[in-house]
């Protein structure tokens, strides 16, 4: 079975024979070995794999933050590998959102300004609308009361929820998340997962890299990466609170099959 054939609705994101090698090492390190992957419109996809399997590299190559060595990436009708740096940046700004393991924020700005920044850049003429949208999100994710705080004055969970706000502020077509709960304790992790699930319910396509089964269990589908190749996938269907233990069991058993 070709993994890319899984989607039943039109794909939001497709990679074909994606390869990435790093030439700074001797001999060069081949991290991605020809990845064929399709993510459906509105799908929540989790990418799992052991450390060093190429999960984060896959995410960076797809989002244009790293240039693939070969193969291509399509976002809707757009071939991302053909784009100039400028157009790729524009695409990242208007069509993609990012959540990282570490909360990457600018320390010279308060939380709200950090969230406003990409949205204002995308829609500089519609400041009032952008601000209203951001303020509504701050309310929704429960961080409105720390909006004018510096980034060193808030908790990790609040920062990660601010990351989600920032990623959504530009109304992206795809949300990328790289180990979004990797630096959080269990209660904060739950907060962030609930937030992501909520965003998915609103129809946002999400591609998440994680090695935490609890996170992956929230996804519609999980793919497994080993040595730069997609080797398997597991369709979990849409997440429901009541269904948690069945999904967890199914996922853990699948992971055991991959010696995870």
């Amino acid at each position: 079975m070709t993994l890319s054939e899984a989607p039943t609705t039109s794909p939001a994101l497709v990679t074909t024979a994606l390869e990435k090698s790093y030439h700074s090492t001797e001999p060069p390190t081949r991290v991605l070995n020809g990845i064929d992957l399709a993510v459906r419109q509105g799908e929540f996809l989790a990418v799992m794999g052991a450390s060093g399997s190429g999960k984060s590299t896959l995410l960076y190559c797809i989002s244009g933050m790293d240039r693939p060595t070969a193969g291509n990436v399509r976002l809707g009708d757009l071939d991302l590998t053909e784009l100039s740096d400028r157009d790729m940046s524009r695409t990242r700004l208007t069509k993609m959102g990012f959540i990282f393991q570490q909360a990457y924020f600018l320390s010279n700005f308060n939380l709200r300004d950090n969230i406003l920044l990409p949205a204002l850049k995308a829609q500089p003429k519609e400041r009032a609308e952008v601000e209203a949208r951001v303020d509504a999100m701050l309310q929704r994710f429960g961080i409105a009361h720390v909006a004018d705080h510096g980034i060193t004055q808030v908790s990790g969970g609040q920062l990660q929820r601010a990351s989600i706000c920032r990623a959504l502020a530009t109304k992206p077509a795809v949300l990328f998340a790289d180990e979004p709960t990797g630096a959080l304790n269990s209660s904060m992790t739950l907060d962030v997962l609930d937030a992501l699930t909520g965003v998915h319910r609103d129809g946002t396509t999400i591609m998440m890299v994680t090695h935490d089964p609890a996170c992956a269990a929230r996804a519609d589908r999980v793919v497994y990466l080993r040595d730069g190749l997609l080797v398997d996938e597991l369709d979990l269907g849409t997440w429901h609170q009541a269904d948690t233990s069945r999904r967890d069991g199914e996922l853990l058993s699948w992971l055991r099959d991959h010696d995870f």
């Binding site: 600018l106 320390s107 010279n108 700005f109 308060n110 709200r112 300004d113 406003l116 920044l117 204002l120 850049k121 500089p124 003429k125 400041r127 004018d148 705080h149 510096g150 060193t152 004055q153």
Partner: peptide
């Protein structure tokens, strides 16, 4: 330093932003 920075960032950097070059503002 954190206290100083917190005081400084309390006021929005975009309070007076009128849609000009965002890079320069940053």
């Amino acid at each position: 330093r954190a206290k100083r920075l917190a005081r400084r960032v309390r006021r929005s950097a975009f309070a007076s932003y009128g849609g000009g070059d965002l890079g320069r503002r940053i």
